[in-house]
C-alpha cells in the first residue's frame, strides 16, 4: 500500500492508485473537519439558536412558510426564505416602501381579540411598544385558547438576552415541552405571566427597535384567519366547526381531549 510496505513497488499503477485513494480520503476528512470547525465557530459566535431556527424553518411544509404578502393577497405565490425575518428581505423592504400598510384597527374573530396597538409574530406572540421604548411580549389570543390551561411555563430570567426567532419561553403540557419563539431582540427586564398583562418586558437591543418583521395593521386579520383554518385542518374531526361566526372555546384541549394536541401545538408553533 505505502512505500516500504511489503508488496509496494514504484510503478505508475501503484502510485496512481494510492494518489487517488489518498485524495478521496483527504477530501472526505477535510470536508468533515470543515463542517466541525464551522459548527464550533457558529456556537462560539452565539449563532446556535438562529441556525437551529433556520434549520427547523427549512423543514416546515411549504404551506407554513408562506410569505406575509401572500396572506394579504399582495402576491399570488411566494415562499419565505428568510425564516420570517423580513428585516433581511429586500423584497419586503421595496414593497413596504411603495405600499405602506393600512392603518391598524382592533378586530375580533371567532372570539379572539387582536388589539390594534400590538404587532404580531408568526410564532403566535404579540409585541407592544411602551412609551419608554421598552417592549411588552405575550402569547396571542389563538395561542392561549389553543393551549388552554397549561401545565407549566418557564420564562427566561431577568437579564437574559433574547433573539428574534430564537426560543423566548417554554410551555410544558401533556408531558411535552414546546418552545415559543421570541418576536424581538433585546434583554429581559421583567417577568410577567399568564395572569398579568404580559409575559415579558424587554429592553430592545436597538433604538428604535427593528420591528419590520412583525405583522401589523391590515395584515393581522388575514393571518389570523389563515391560522384558524390551519388549526381547524389539524384537528377538524374533534373540533366544533368555526364556520359562520362560531366562537373558539376558552380551553380547546379540554373540549376535545382526544385530539393529538402535542402534534397540533408543535405545528402551530412552527416546531416540526
Amino acid at each position: 500500500m505505502f512505500p516500504n510496505v511489503s508488496g509496494w513497488s514504484w510503478t505508475p499503477l501503484h502510485v496512481t492508485f494510492v494518489t487517488i485513494f489518498l485524495t478521496v480520503a483527504a477530501v472526505m476528512a477535510g470536508t468533515l473537519l470543515l463542517a466541525a470547525w464551522r459548527a464550533w465557530r457558529d456556537v462560539r459566535r452565539g449563532r446556535a439558536e438562529s441556525i437551529r431556527w433556520h434549520s427547523e424553518f427549512e423543514d416546515l411544509p411549504l404551506a407554513d412558510r408562506t410569505c406575509r404578502h401572500v396572506l394579504t393577497n399582495e402576491f399570488l405565490h411566494r415562499t419565505c426564505d428568510q425564516g420570517f425575518d423580513c428585516r433581511e428581505c429586500a423584497t419586503h423592504a421595496r414593497w413596504t416602501e411603495n405600499h405602506p400598510a393600512a392603518a391598524a384597527v382592533d378586530f375580533e374573530v371567532a372570539g379572539l381579540k387582536y388589539p390594534a396597538d400590538r404587532m404580531y409574530h408568526r410564532g403566535h406572540t404579540w409585541v407592544k411598544v411602551e412609551d419608554g421604548g421598552t417592549l411588552l411580549i405575550g402569547p396571542d389570543a389563538l395561542s392561549e385558547r389553543m393551549f388552554g390551561r397549561i401545565g407549566s411555563l418557564t420564562l427566561p430570567a431577568v437579564g437574559t438576552t433574547l433573539h428574534a426567532c430564537a426560543p423566548a419561553w417554554t410551555i410544558r403540557s401533556r408531558g411535552d415541552t414546546f418552545r415559543v419563539l421570541s418576536p424581538v431582540d433585546g434583554e429581559v427586564v421583567e417577568q410577567g405571566g399568564p395572569e398579568q398583562a404580559c409575559y415579558l418586558r424587554v429592553r430592545p437591543s436597538e433604538h428604535p427597535p427593528a420591528l419590520t418583521h412583525l405583522l401589523r395593521g391590515s395584515e393581522v386579520r388575514p393571518w389570523v384567519l389563515r391560522e384558524l383554518e390551519r388549526l381547524q385542518l389539524l384537528v377538524s374531526p374533534g373540533l366544533p366547526s368555526l364556520a359562520d361566526g362560531g366562537v373558539l372555546a376558552e380551553d380547546l384541549p379540554a373540549m376535545s381531549p382526544d385530539v393529538n394536541w402535542p402534534a397540533v401545538w408543535g405545528q402551530m408553533l412552527l416546531e416540526p
Partner: peptide, 28 residues
Amino acid sequence: KTRKLRQIPAYAVFEWELHKLVPVFALI
C-alpha cells in the same frame, strides 16, 4: 434531525453545517 438531538444546539449547528457540505459527499 431527530426531535431529541436537535434540542442540543451544538448538534443542530453541526447538522446544519454538515448538510451544507453534503453536495461534496454526493459528488465523491
